[in-house]
């Protein structure tokens, strides 16, 4: 094989590994330290558990995530869904170290960020993460 063919094979192998890692990490809920900036300016209200979703225009999974989050929020009492545009809130995006869209933060009743997931979560991942807080 010529060098180009080897590079093509190596690139495809790397892409398969990267794709599998990406797929596995998508939507996985991680515990966070719980502190963070005040989120009131984004519409987060105390006394409610909030799904705070950061989205961007160039983002197809954001739309599916929006549909899922608002459906779950509509079914559960005390849970609200807020979607904010990452690009128009770049300061908050930097402060919270958000690297990708969609990123979903779960804010508890006292306004602390308790979990976060980057990439599109599944319904089961979302339900498991909020059920303990309600």
């Amino acid at each position: 094989m010529n060098p180009g063919a080897w590079i093509a094979a190596a690139a495809l192998l790397a892409a398969v590994l990267a794709g599998l890692a990406w797929q596995r990490g998508n939507g996985r809920m991680r515990e966070t330290r719980g502190d963070g900036p005040d989120l009131a300016h984004l519409g987060v209200e105390p006394g409610q558990v909030t799904l705070l979703q950061f989205s961007s225009a160039f983002c197809t999974p954001c739309r599916a995530t929006r549909a899922l989050c608002s459906d779950v929020a509509g079914r559960l009492d005390g849970l609200t869904h807020i979607e904010v545009d990452a690009e128009s809130n770049l300061d908050t995006v930097r402060e919270l170290n958000i690297l990708r869209t969609p990123t979903v933060l779960i804010v508890d009743r006292s306004g602390r960020i308790v979990r976060r997931a980057s990439g599109q979560p599944t319904r089961a991942q979302l339900m498991a993460a909020v059920s303990a807080l309600l």
Binding site: A11, A15, A18, Q23, L99, R100
Partner: peptide
């Protein structure tokens, strides 16, 4: 060409749009 191949393959096989993922990092 190798970078483009990786990006095109990820899009075709996994539905992952690499250019879209990078967009927020670029804006940040």
């Amino acid at each position: 060409a190798a970078f483009a191949l990786v990006a095109a393959f990820l899009n075709a096989a996994f539905g992952l749009c690499l250019g879209c993922e990078v967009f927020l990092l670029y804006r940040r």
